[in-house]
Simulated scan of single mutants.
Amino acid sequence: MTSVLTGVSDELDPRLLEHRRELTGYCYRMLGSSFDADDAVQETLVRAWKSLADFEGRSSLRSWLYRIATNVCLDQLSGRQRRALPMDLSGSSWSPVEASLAAKRPAEAWVEPVLDRQVLPEDGDPAERAVARESVRLAFVAALQHLPPRQRAVLLLRDVLRWRADEVAGLLETTVASVNSALQRARATLAAMGGTPEPRPLDADSRELLARYLDAFERYDVDAFVALLHEDATQHMPPFEMWLGGAADIGTWMLGPGSACRGSRLLQTEANGCPAFAQYRLRGDGVHVPWALHVLEIDGDRVRHITSFLDLDTGLFVRLGMPAVLEPRPEAATS
């Protein structure tokens, strides 16, 4: 992908670049795609850079950038079908057999992952950071895609970014009454879909669980791995439509169609406000190559849900800034 900032990035006013991360988070929530969000932010910054001399300061620079970003996102969403997650498409789980892989959709059909470091503030008020983290959770981002684009913008600006109704009305060039009406409808839609999850910060027990998860997966001890899951745990694997229901079926899959993952290595990271692991599968020459980004939902002392975003020639890892390969560990090279 060629950045639209190529050739002009060195000339951009540093004041514009200060807002890149929060704008990326906003565009990601609007679009459901980290890559589309990057494009939208790049387009926003280019438009702002070209118009900066005419910016009269009648609003703050931040508000002006959000106005541009909103218009860019609304343009991108025009005529598009909503992105989804596999569990949104089917009410019942699939059998853990290879034939379930027959149903597959293109990358643009799915909600995509985003690394926390790309969209979440590094510091600031803990309560605001908790809200920001929850607002990039996959379930919430997928639910947002059910809202009409302008309702989506209103809800994000009011409930996530905490803008006043008159500020949102000014940005969208509408009335406060229209903003309040759109917000009520958006909230009602999300509430009917189950609302949003409560913040669950990682504690010492969660960190121990993640260490055991990594160890069991890398040793490919399926019994130990399954023991870390809730009995009714679920897993889905975009771009495939299938999803698995129950720890037993997840274990069956790992020993069956997923058995080629034996010998993988994991790198721990954080994505969509949750703990995540980047999985690298072993290649014949001893090098590990990108395979899947696993985003985990932890509930109590076990894993409740796994979303495994497969990197099937999509360049997902590289585009997220993850290593393109993992070289053999020193002990492996010398053994």
Rank of each mutant, 00 (worst) to 15 (best):
A165I: 07
A165M: 06
V168E: 06
V168P: 00
A169G: 09
A169Q: 08
G170Y: 15
E173S: 12
T174Q: 04
T174N: 05
T175K: 07
T175P: 05
V176R: 14
S178Q: 11
V179P: 06
N180H: 11
S181C: 12
S181V: 15
A182T: 11
L183G: 07
L183S: 13
R185H: 14
R185L: 14
R187Q: 13
T189Q: 13
L190V: 15
A192P: 12
A192S: 15
M193S: 15
M193D: 11
G195A: 14
G195W: 08
G195V: 14
T196D: 11
E198H: 15
P199A: 11
L202N: 08
L202D: 08
A204V: 13
D205C: 10
E208K: 14
L209V: 04
L209T: 05
L210M: 03
A211M: 05
R212M: 01
Y213D: 02
L214V: 07
L214Q: 09
A216T: 03
R219E: 05
Y220V: 00
Y220P: 03
Y220F: 06
V222M: 01
V222K: 03
A224M: 02
F225S: 06
L228P: 07
H230S: 04
E231P: 02
E231G: 08
E231V: 07
D232S: 02
D232W: 00
A233E: 00
T234Q: 03
T234H: 02
T234E: 01
T234R: 04
T234L: 01
Q235A: 02
Q235M: 07
F240Q: 00
E241Y: 01
W243E: 00
G245R: 04
A247M: 09
A247Q: 12
A247N: 05
A247S: 12
D249N: 13
D249M: 09
T252N: 10
W253S: 04
M254S: 11
M254E: 06
G256A: 06
G256S: 05
P257Y: 10
G258S: 11
A260E: 12
C261G: 13
G263A: 09
G263P: 07
G263V: 07
R265M: 05
R265Y: 11
R265L: 10
R265V: 06
L266Y: 12
L267E: 11
